[in-house]
């Protein structure tokens, strides 16, 4: 009978772990995007939101811990699944035409790696202030941090690129997660990903709008 290890040892178990952790991150990213959009309502709105988050104390650390654990599990499972899947086809095809796989589904691994790099840099950039492309960093004025950073073209470019990767990753990931964990209802056309497409588009637009608007001088 399956123990926790037996469960995780199987590829389906790993995929379920990836699905659950992925969905945790989807939830986080949605909240994060909603909060960030406050930037369009001016410095006060954003800064007070940021202040509110920091005031939650232990709760914030619990959320952070959950996210870190989820991320670590997601990445470890992804690496293991990828290795096993590569090993499952030692000799490839001379010619292979994809019939259903999308750009999004085929770039989950590379896009995921880019997102991992992004997350690390993003935390060093906006959370800890370790990386300061604009030279300055304020622990209270999140708005100023954003504006000064996104005025730099390569910072804005890095964020815009990463958010495109996020959109693709989510487009396939949000849809496949609910299938991996076995909760998606029976569908006449299972490959249709309407909800997932809406979610991915919303997040991509929301996260891309901020650096673009700042770089273009529409904000700040």
């Amino acid at each position: 009978m399956a123990t926790g290890r037996g469960f995780y040892r199987s590829l389906v178990g790993k995929k379920i772990v990836m699905g659950v952790t992925g969905l945790i991150w989807v939830g986080f990213v949605v909240g994060h995007a909603a909060g960030n959009l406050l930037v369009f309502r001016g410095p006060e709105a954003l800064n007070s939101y940021s202040h509110f988050l920091k005031s939650t104390g232990e709760l914030l650390w619990i959320v952070r811990a959950v996210l870190v654990v989820a991320l670590v599990l997601h990445v470890i499972a992804a690496v293991q699944v990828t290795r096993q899947s590569r090993a499952a086809r030692p000799v490839g095809y001379a010619k292979q035409e994809h019939q259903a796989a999308t750009f999004a589904s085929r770039t989950m691994r590379w896009g995921g790696a880019l997102l991992l790099v992004f997350i690390v840099l993003h935390i060093l950039h906006f959370t800890t202030g370790t990386v300061r492309p604009a030279g300055s960093f304020s622990t209270t004025d999140v708005y100023a941090n954003m504006v000064t950073s996104f005025r730099i073209w390569w910072v804005a470019f890095f964020y815009v690129t990463s958010m495109a990767a996020l959109g693709f990753h989510l487009f396939h990931g949000a849809w496949s997660s609910v299938r991996s964990i076995g909760v998606s209802p029976v569908s006449a056309d299972p490959l249709k990903k309407k909800v997932s497409l809406g979610l991915a588009l919303f997040l991509w637009l929301a996260f891309t709008a901020i650096p673009v608007a700042i770089f273009a001088g529409l904000i700040g």
Binding site: K15, S85, Q99, A100, R106, S176, I181, G182, L191
Partner: peptide, 28 residues
């Protein structure tokens, strides 16, 4: 065998057009 990442290629290739909904059910 490798892991399912839900590309959906199997459903397209299946001569009996079996749905990937079955995979959801298996995982459940």
């Amino acid at each position: 065998f490798g892991s399912c990442t839900l590309h959906g290629e199997c459903q397209e290739a299946c001569p009996k057009e079996i749905s990937i909904d079955t995979i959801t059910r298996m995982n459940r």
